[in-house]
Design a protein around this nucleic acid. Structure first.
Lengths: 332, 332
DNA sequence: CTGAAAGCGCTAACAC
DNA sequence: GTGTTAGCGCTTTCAG
């Protein structure tokens, strides 16, 4: 692999000059510039990013910790971020936190030791305190899908409480009173928030929360299936079920069908997130939209603005959920 | 950010010794080791990955070019790779190729300039020749989802031709003769291969290919919808439709339902890939399994073995497709 | 507009 | 076991 030194020798100029043309940083006489470019071409020179980073003390890359690499939810979130960053010639280094504290911290450390210029953190297990401390340690980062009061200006998220509220509201508005709820893992802040919204909506409507209609799932389709089956077998009257996310709603739908029941005629169903496939579910799933693309892009803009001094004015840090009404809710 | 030098001063030892304890590379007397570790802790020392890479000339990271970050297909593929690599303490740097040659080449160059120890390439636009040349240039890489004869030992893929064949075969076995086909973008090798398999199955069964029953989509759900609508409106007799991937099958299903037709009673449907959601489609989609996890893991193993000298014996480079029979095919 | 030279933080011989 | 030292490939003053 050719080095800058070889290029400089071939071109008959100094190292510094080659560096200048690589980075377009200073004026270089057109003639010398051409010589350097020729030399680079004939040598197949490619800048050593590692060396550049070490010398300049910046890596032009932002680190991103995601819970998992798979799943359409995270992919969509990442996608928006990547697009904007690429436009600005910044790179994205992705690491998975696997929803546990050890891996999450490891991922952060690893990104830091790579000297990422900034981080985007989509964490589930790590404590708020850890993040507040990280901010005090002068690490530049943005938190996605989580709101932490002490560092609110670094957070981009959906108002999950309100989301849980409007999902349940949609059911109540249609005359439902016996509403079951399948939560995500309740130790996760977003799952808890959504459930909190659900409870608020019930209370506001004067409907008592019945613990026997609540099942704690884990955001996976299988848990929705299991929860719904259990709920259905419990003998309780249920006219509608609200799920902590769409995937669990898929599983719930499956359980409902297996029981020989119909959606929404026998049971109404509502999800959360509006992931890509929800419009293909039969009947089409009514759900709360999680604006993944917007959130991903906002995170990118915040960093582009703050760290790379690009001219972005970020409008929303906390997005408002929107109910997507399709065909899975019956009016009673 | 603390440096190795500060650690060495605080611990009262030399740089080399600190380096030794960081990398566990040479014997260090327990006493000194403890002193060094204390110093690291009190300084909050974190190795500078960039500097390590430059000095040692290896980065312990493998680069991965994916077509897109979103979509459950790629996510699942990545996921298996990441798991194995993480186990071996290697990192994954992901870059998106966005299905166009410019971005794909840029992504590769960027990974190379980061001095990735090896690459995993999931490319769509770049030519075979380019990759053959890359191999000659001594770049270590593995190609995913594509077979190139000249560098066959570097390829991990599914036999897409056979996949297209068995999908159509499943339809033929059930008595279908009027089979429509919605392809992925035909300039993509996998789309073409699947279609080739389709044609082979037809021919073998003595069924003439009718061009008016073929629609070229682009692997997106919308194109499946559009293709199916068009096919349905053409007035041709169609008893079954075979799609180049599951997402297009979702769109096709939608079009079929909108026409007031039923799956599989009026029209049988088969997909390709068996992405996660396909079991939730109504009726459950019969499809060809694309073993994303296996393929992702195999790619990782090949690299772990070849580049990092880990002890993996990779069994399959070309996976055999398997038909997943669910409920979207009717026996005529 | 161009060159010389001092690092960036670390590894890897090579001595002791 | 431990220290010394020469780079890794590049950026960045500072001169000129």
């Amino acid at each position: 692999m050719a080095t800058i030194k070889q290029v400089s020798e071939l071109a008959g100029v100094s190292l510094a000059t080659v560096s200048r043309v690589i980075n377009n940083t200073d004026q270089v006489k057109p003639g010398t510039k051409a010589k350097v470019e020729d030399a680079m071409k004939t040598l197949g020179y490619r800048p050593n990013f590692i060396a550049q980073s070490l010398a300049s003390n910046k890596s032009n890359t932002v680190g991103y910790v995601v819970p998992e690499l798979h799943g359409s939810f995270f992919g969509d979130l990442l996608s928006g971020t990547e697009r904007l960053l690429k436009q600005a010639n910044k790179h994205l280094f992705i690491a998975a936190g696997h929803s546990n504290e050890v891996d999450e911290v490891k991922a952060i450390e690893s990104l830091l030791s790579r000297r990422c210029d900034a981080l985007i953190l989509h964490l589930e297990a790590v404590s708020n305190d850890y993040l507040v401390q990280l901010a005090k340690d002068n690490v530049d980062f943005v938190v996605v899908n989580r709101f932490i009061a002490e560092i609110s200006e670094r957070c981009v998220t959906l108002d999950n409480v309100k989301g849980g509220y409007i999902a349940t509201q949609a059911l109540i508005d249609n005359g439902h009173k016996s509403i079951a709820y399948i939560t995500g893992s309740l130790w996760k802040a977003d799952a808890e928030d959504r459930f909190t919204g659900h409870k608020a909506a019930l209370q506001e409507a004067g409907i008592a929360l019945r613990p026997e209609l609540v099942f704690e799932g884990d955001f996976q389709a299988d848990s929705g299936y299991k929860g719904m089956s259990q709920l259905l077998n419990s003998g309780e009257t249920i006219t509608a079920v609200c799920c902590g996310n769409d995937e669990m709603a898929y599983g719930a739908a499956e359980a409902i069908r297996e029981k020989g029941l119909r959606i929404p005629d026998d049971i109404s169903l509502v999800g959360f997130d509006d992931i890509e496939f929800s419009r293909f579910l039969q009947p089409k799933l009514s759900t709360v939209k999680y604006p993944m693309r917007d959130i991903g892009e906002t995170a990118a803009k915040m960093i582009l603005q703050k760290i790379y001094n690009k001219d972005f004015s970020v409008k929303h840090h906390i997005f408002d959920p929107v109910m997507i009404s399709r065909n899975s809710i019956k009016t009673l």
